[in-house]
């Protein structure tokens, strides 16, 4: 019995390592297929549309609400110390450093990542990928690579939109409703939010998240068990894995960027 438990553990670890290996092979194959994306920019545009434009509404609306909540909560906390003027710093710094990249990434994982997995998984289940192979078309170059780059390009733009809309949302609540001074909101923000330290690092974060989400989504789709049950499992796993990966990576990146 005791050995059986070890065997189960060992099988699990070996299986996970094998999947990890396959995932990396897929990533290298996608990167090796980058040239195809440059030769057919239209394929890339279509995927920026699928990931970026179709996620725009949910990202924009969420950004607005998150910014407004930050404005409200921040005001109540800061007002207790008589520092309501610093509301701008709080809203902007938390959005640009953390909430913008992270929440936008989670939304994209749910909205676009799951769709990518389902699409690729269904293409596999209905033999469309094998069909492409038989037409001497490499599905990794033709189907996966454009989707990968579409996600990587769209993610930082979505995060920036999220943060910008959030800052405006905080402005509406803080300045418009709660009466924080207009000038103080922007001045304090500009004085304390650093371009290099905050904005550039935020963009780097969202780029990394973009890679992580599309990679997980494409791998889960490509590696799916080609049945309808397999595709639905992969889709769920895609969202769960990419959400966990985003949060884990966020901790690592934050420690690297702001820890020193």
């Amino acid at each position: 019995m005791r050995f059986e438990a070890f065997a189960v553990l060992g099988r699990g670890v070996l299986g996970a390592l094998e999947r990890l290996g396959r995932a990396h092979l897929l990533l290298f194959a996608i990167l090796a297929g980058s040239g195809e994306v440059l030769r057919h920019p239209r394929l890339l545009f279509e995927q920026i549309y699928n990931v970026g434009v179709l996620s725009l509404l949910i990202v924009g609306v969420s950004g607005l609400f998150v910014g407004m909540v930050l404005g409200l909560q921040g005001y109540y906390v800061l007002a207790q110390f008589g520092a309501a003027e610093s509301l701008g710093i709080m809203v902007a710094a938390s959005l640009v450093r953390e909430l913008g990249p992270v929440v936008a990434a989670l939304l994209v994982a749910g909205r676009a990542g799951s769709a990518l997995t389902a699409e690729i998984g269904l293409m596999k289940a209905t033999e469309q990928l094998a069909g492409l192979e038989m037409m001497a078309v490499d599905p990794i170059r033709r189907i996966l690579a454009p989707r990968f780059y579409g996600g990587v390009v769209a993610m930082p733009l979505l995060a920036a939109i999220f943060s910008a809309v959030g800052v405006l949302g905080g402005y509406f609540v803080g300045v418009g409703l709660l009466g924080v001074d207009d000038g103080a909101y922007w001045n304090q923000m500009q004085a304390k939010v650093d371009f290099q330290e905050d904005i550039v690092n935020g963009v780097i974060k969202s780029l990394v998240f973009g890679v992580a989400i599309t990679w997980v989504a494409l791998f889960q789709g490509y590696d799916t068990v080609p049945t309808s049950e397999g595709v639905s499992r992969s889709t769920t796993r895609s969202v769960v894995h990419s959400a966990l990966l985003v949060l884990g990576l966020d901790f690592v990146l934050t420690a690297l960027m702001f820890g020193g």
Partner: peptide, 22 residues
Amino acid sequence: TVGAFVVLGVVALFFLAMQVSN
């Protein structure tokens, strides 16, 4: 729409750089 989306994203980045940061 992709063109508009990219412009919107760049405008947001520009806004963050010029209006929010130093």
